[in-house]
């Protein structure tokens, strides 16, 4: 108590009343008790706020549909989950998962994971597309500690990669031979049958020659072989006009040498299919190539064309329509 009086000379609650007279010991005890109550009350409020239980039941690895809490770090995987009616089970997403409502929290991306938010979300499953090095070591450690199940795919470039990724989703999310697993597999079968019907329909009325798939004009950037759009093209009976693999930059001179008989520009920003391909083509439309002379020039304005996922089904439909239009084009008389 003496210390209170010694270092509290200027503070009225440390021993002096505002008028300068000294508190009695009883009054000091009362004041301290009041302070204690305030502190306890504050702690109680904070504890209630902190412990408010709006988290769902946490389960380890494979669970039932109602218990699933999925975090997806890949827009392609997210898109597949949405098409498999699992949108409501997604509790966290990457910055690039635009096929989800914006109120679903962003948990970073493959390179920059927001671990704090991830812990808050308490997922049961984390799905991701990884680099060659695999998933982040810290994430793997956390997953092991918390019992999260991680589904990872190292490469989703081709149509076969997409199918492999989608068909593996039930294995990651559900117990083998469970009802949910069967139901999900059936849904996937239905999706792929739909794609097969589009790809393997009667091909005689479609263009079956080479097509250059362009996604930027100068420098010309193309979807080369071993990409999902190239695979779709080949499955539809046409072929890729370039021999390069993956996503590559070419010069206008390369295109001039290739002399593709047909060109499809993959536009990303617009859903307006009425956009004029010649306006988009710019200098590409001025080259003396067969595609320009025969006017086999089209724009594919489908945002799904940029995502190696289940959205390729709608892209396949549009591609088929474009190839059908190309078949009507003929070389004009000089």
């Amino acid at each position: 108590m003496t210390s209170l009086f010694q270092d509290g000379m200027k503070c009225h609650y440390h021993g002096y009343r505002p008028n300068g007279t000294i508190y009695t010991m009883g009054e000091i005890r009362l004041i301290r008790l009041r302070h204690l109550w305030v502190i306890l009350l504050y702690m109680a409020v904070m504890a209630i706020v902190g412990c408010r239980n709006d988290d769902p039941e946490v389960v380890n690895s494979a669970g039932t549909a109602s218990q699933l809490r999925i975090v997806s770090f890949s827009p392609a995987i997210t898109r597949a989950l949405v098409d498999l009616d699992l949108e409501e089970k997604i509790v966290g997403r990457s910055t690039f998962c635009t096929s989800l409502p914006t109120d679903i929290p962003v948990v970073g991306d493959l390179l920059q994971i927001n671990y704090e938010r991830l812990l808050e979300l308490q997922p049961t499953h984390i799905l991701m597309q990884t680099s060659r090095e695999g998933a982040d070591t810290r994430l793997l450690e956390l997953a092991e500690q918390k019992g999260w199940k991680i589904g990872q795919w190292s490469r989703i470039n081709t149509l076969a990669d997409i199918e492999r990724m989608v068909r593996a989703i039930p294995d990651v999310l559900y117990e083998q031979e469970s009802g949910e697993h069967h139901r999900m597999s059936d849904k996937i079968d239905t999706l792929w049958r739909r794609l097969d019907r589009i790809l393997h329909a009667e091909a005689s009325d479609r263009w079956q020659g080479p097509v250059l798939l362009v996604h930027h004009i100068d420098p010309v950037a193309v979807f080369g072989r071993e990409t999902y759009l190239s695979d779709l093209l080949i499955a539809l009976g046409a072929s890729n006009a370039t021999e390069v693999t993956g996503w590559q930059n070419l010069s206008l001179e390369d295109v001039s040498h290739l002399n593709p008989p047909a060109v499809i520009i993959i536009a990303e920003t617009s859903e307006d299919s009425s956009v004029d391909p010649w306006e988009l083509a710019g200098p590409l439309g001025k080259l003396k190539i067969e595609a320009v002379q025969t006017r086999r020039f089209a724009v594919l304005s489908n945002p799904d064309a940029w995502l190696p996922s289940t959205g390729v089904i709608s892209v396949a439909e549009e591609l088929r329509e474009i190839l059908h239009q190309f078949n009507q084009s003929t070389i004009p008389e000089q």
């Binding site: 827009p75 690039f96 635009t98 996604h215 930027h216 004009i217 100068d218 420098p219 950037a221 996503w247 930059n249 010069s251 206008l252 001179e253 993959i266 990303e268 920003t269 710019g282 200098p283 590409l284 945002p303 940029w306 995502l307």
Partner: peptide
């Protein structure tokens, strides 16, 4: 969006355009 990121990076590295 994804596709545009790559385009921006290509532009920022400098390009000698044949279509100028």
């Amino acid at each position: 969006p994804h596709g545009l990121k790559a385009d921006l990076v290509t532009w920022m590295m400098g390009i000698i355009r044949q279509g100028a």
